[in-house]
Nucleic acid binder design. Structure first.
Ligand SMILES: [Mn+2]
Ligand SMILES: [Mn+2]
Ligand SMILES: [Zn+2]
Ligand SMILES: [Zn+2]
Lengths: 143, 143
DNA sequence: TTTGATGTTGATAATTAATATCAATACCAT
DNA sequence: ATGGTATTGATATTAATTATCAACATCAAA
């Protein structure tokens, strides 16, 4: 898997910024890279607690932010719920179908939609930088 | 304008639910209907304060929620900012281009995109109920 | 018109998530 | 090895939303 490369990017970024490597930082990075997608700070905190009783919530939060900073992670906010983080390295841009019943996230991509969004922006003299497309409904299992 | 019809819907809903008509409720309704779009509770509260010194924040909040309930208003959450409310009655579905510099909301609609979203959902055995498409970037004035 | 059951209001408290603070500690360049 | 400083973890703060509740207003019924 590409986890090795992701780690490299993280440690290179840390060094470059004059930051330091710590036991916690490495634990958090690894836990994040091997965790499922669309994870919350709480989720990751609880996973880490199992192997490091002393880990602090704020530390997990801070380091998830750091991973976003260096391009490894992406913050996604859906609905009014808490912020979720997903892996960015080695993952193409995608949008989400979100099940209102079970909360499942289905990752989707449609080039046509992406292109039409760009056209729509241009038609409005707007320079698009990023976008968010979320479709809420019921997944196969929940109908 | 259709504000008269919107008022009718509101009062009909209230009566139907065994709720009561109050001075505040009517003030809030009218202020909302004549206010600009994408307004926050704060915005509306401050507008109302000018003509009704005694109005309470919670009352404004509660009644905006009530307007959503009866289909007159829609709640939109963009980024991590506070919830905004927009008029729904007499307004077609639309998406938003949001300027990262001035905060302007540009309302847009593209039937092709809407149809492709539907197709995309079907292709994933997903029954779409609603969606959110927000494109962030820079508006004409802010470049 | 009076009345009373109950919905509403406005002030304030509670809740929740995100972030700031800070003293103790750990890292790492020299 | 060690000192300057980044990091940690506990806790406080902030900010937005929602809940609580006593005082009050509404409106259907008498
Ligand atoms: Mn995803
Ligand atoms: Mn709008
Ligand atoms: Zn589901
Ligand atoms: Zn702008």
């Amino acid at each position: 898997m590409g986890a090795g490369k992701a780690r490299e990017i993280f440690f290179a970024y840390i060094k470059d910024k004059g930051l330091r490597n710590t036991k916690q930082r490495e634990e958090i990075l690894d836990a994040f890279l091997s965790a499922g997608k669309h994870i919350t700070v709480d989720d990751l905190y609880n996973i880490l607690k199992k192997t490091d009783q002393a880990i602090g919530y704020a530390t997990v939060h801070r380091n998830l932010k750091l991973m976003c900073e260096c391009g490894l992670a992406d913050e996604i906010k859906v609905g009014s719920n808490k912020t979720r983080f997903e892996q960015k390295y080695g993952h193409e841009h995608h949008d989400h179908l979100i099940c209102l019943k079970c909360g499942r996230f289905i990752e989707v991509h449609d080039d046509k939609i992406e292109r039409l969004q760009e056209k729509l922006s241009e038609a409005n003299d707007f320079v698009a930088q990023r976008h968010k497309l979320e479709i809420y409904g019921l997944c196969k299992k929940c109908r």
